[in-house]
């Protein structure tokens, strides 16, 4: 697969250090934002990313961080492309990513993020602190575009939930 001095696997390993600037425990790969890594014959690296939310201001930062991480590893010929289609869904967050969100205090999104789940879903959202399912949504809009605000009725702590999308 590798035609240049770098292998695709090595680049993906390097990119593991690039985190979501607003949730600095989860990498762009675990978030499902990293869609593809391409290697051209001349050694040029093309990284394809997709936005979580349309207006996600973190995208430009992620693109800059990807370039910097690769530059620090000696890879300077890098192009970061943004694609909209297929549209990102919370189902692309990896299992380890979901666990990291939870450990960080953010309830991971419910699965089956299709439009039916969006419209009708009243999923059980577990409190990331005590694990209780006795929780309630305070607001569908939270601290960032991708999160909703919830509270736990048992331990009484408020928490962020990664919205189902």
């Amino acid at each position: 697969m590798s035609t240049g001095p770098h292998t695709r696997d090595r680049i993906i390993t390097i990119l593991e250090s690039v985190k979501d600037p607003e949730i600095p425990v989860i990498s762009v790969r675990e978030l499902g934002v990293l869609r593809d890594v391409g290697l051209a014959a001349d050694g040029k690296v093309a990284v394809t990313i997709t936005p979580t939310y349309t207006g996600c201001p973190a995208m430009d930062v992620m693109a800059a961080d990807i370039k910097q991480a690769l530059r620090e590893a000696g890879i300077t010929k890098v192009e970061v492309k943004q694609v909209l289609s297929p549209a990102w869904t919370t189902d692309w967050i990896t299992e380890e990513g979901r666990n990291k969100l939870k450990a960080y205090g953010i309830a991971p999104p419910p699965h089956t993020a299709d439009i039916r789940a969006l419209k009708g879903c009243a999923p059980v959202v577990e409190c990331p602190r005590c694990g209780s399912g006795n929780t309630a949504m305070l607001s569908a809009f939270g601290s960032t575009a991708c999160k909703a605000l919830w509270k736990c009725n048992d331990c009484l702590e408020p928490f962020d939930q990664f919205k189902c999308l």
């Binding site: 936005p51 939310y53 909209l84 549209a87 990102w88 439009i115 809009f141 919205k163 999308l165």
Partner: peptide, 9 residues
């Protein structure tokens, strides 16, 4: 396709 999910919210 991206907007429709947000518009639902």
């Amino acid at each position: 396709a991206k907007a429709v999910k947000e518009a639902t919210y």
